[in-house]
Amino acid sequence: MTEGTDTEPNADPGRERALRTARLRTSHADAETVAAALRPDNTDSMEMAVEGDALVTTVSRETTGGLQSTVDDTVVNLTVAETIVDTVQNYE
């Protein structure tokens, strides 16, 4: 028995693995500010774009577990950033 984390037991080591991708589209009163708050935490596996009042975040990872973890972290960060932006705008 061989130990390893590769999910494809007969995978060709020279072949690139297919990426798993998720696209999150969220609407915000101030999408640019939410994006600016999140950008320092972005990794190389993430792309973020502001489209009007929407923030579109695309995450690509080699494993489903890695994709899930990154998406979970991103959703939490989005929730916190949105709450802070709303609070600041309502109490200025």
Results as ranks from 00 to 15, higher is better:
Met1Ala: 07
Glu3His: 04
Gly4Thr: 04
Gly4Ile: 05
Thr5Gly: 09
Asp6Gly: 07
Asp6Val: 07
Thr7Gly: 01
Thr7Trp: 04
Glu8Ala: 09
Pro9Gln: 14
Pro9Ile: 14
Pro9Ala: 14
Asn10Ser: 08
Asn10Arg: 10
Asn10Trp: 12
Ala11Glu: 12
Ala11Arg: 15
Pro13Tyr: 06
Gly14Val: 07
Arg15Thr: 15
Arg17Gln: 09
Ala18Val: 13
Leu19Asp: 08
Arg20Pro: 05
Thr21Ile: 12
Thr21Trp: 06
Thr21Gln: 10
Ala22Leu: 05
Leu24Met: 13
Leu24Val: 12
Arg25Trp: 13
Arg25Leu: 14
Ser27Leu: 11
Ser27Gly: 14
Ala29Ile: 12
Asp30Lys: 13
Asp30His: 15
Glu32Asn: 09
Thr33Cys: 04
Thr33Gln: 04
Thr33Leu: 05
Val34Phe: 04
Val34Ile: 07
Ala35Gln: 01
Ala35Gly: 01
Ala36Lys: 04
Ala37Ile: 01
Ala37His: 02
Leu38Val: 06
Pro40Phe: 08
Pro40Lys: 06
Pro40Leu: 06
Pro40Thr: 08
Asn42Val: 03
Asn42Cys: 08
Thr43Gln: 07
Thr43Glu: 07
Asp44Glu: 11
Asp44Cys: 06
Ser45Met: 10
Ser45Cys: 10
Ser45Ile: 06
Ser45Gly: 10
Met46Glu: 15
Met46Cys: 13
Met46Lys: 13
Glu47Val: 13
Glu47Gln: 15
Glu47Ser: 15
Glu47Ala: 14
Met48Ala: 15
Met48Glu: 11
Ala49Tyr: 01
Ala49Leu: 08
Val50Ala: 03
Val50Met: 05
Glu51Thr: 07
Glu51Ala: 07
Asp53Trp: 00
Asp53Asn: 02
Ala54Arg: 05
Leu55Cys: 11
Leu55Gly: 07
Val56Met: 09
Thr57Arg: 02
Thr57Gly: 05
Thr58Ala: 11
Val59Ala: 07
Val59Asn: 03
Arg61Ala: 12
Arg61Pro: 03
Glu62Ala: 11
Thr63Cys: 01
Thr64Leu: 15
Gly65Gln: 11
Gly65His: 12
Gly65Ser: 11
Gly66Pro: 00
Gly66Ser: 07
Gly66Gln: 06
Leu67Glu: 01
Gln68Thr: 08
Gln68Ala: 08
Thr70Asn: 04
Val71Gln: 03
Val71Thr: 04
Asp72Leu: 05
Thr74Ala: 03
Thr74Trp: 01
Val75Ile: 13
Val75Gln: 09
Val75Phe: 09
Val76Leu: 14
Val76Gln: 14
Val76Tyr: 13
Val76Phe: 13
Thr79Cys: 14
Val80Leu: 10
Val80Thr: 09
Ala81Phe: 03
Ala81Thr: 01
Glu82Ile: 00
Glu82Thr: 04
Glu82Met: 02
Glu82Asn: 03
Thr83Asp: 14
Val85Phe: 01
Val85Glu: 02
Thr87Arg: 08
Val88Pro: 00
Gln89Tyr: 10
Gln89Ile: 10
Asn90Glu: 05
Asn90Trp: 01
Glu92Gly: 10
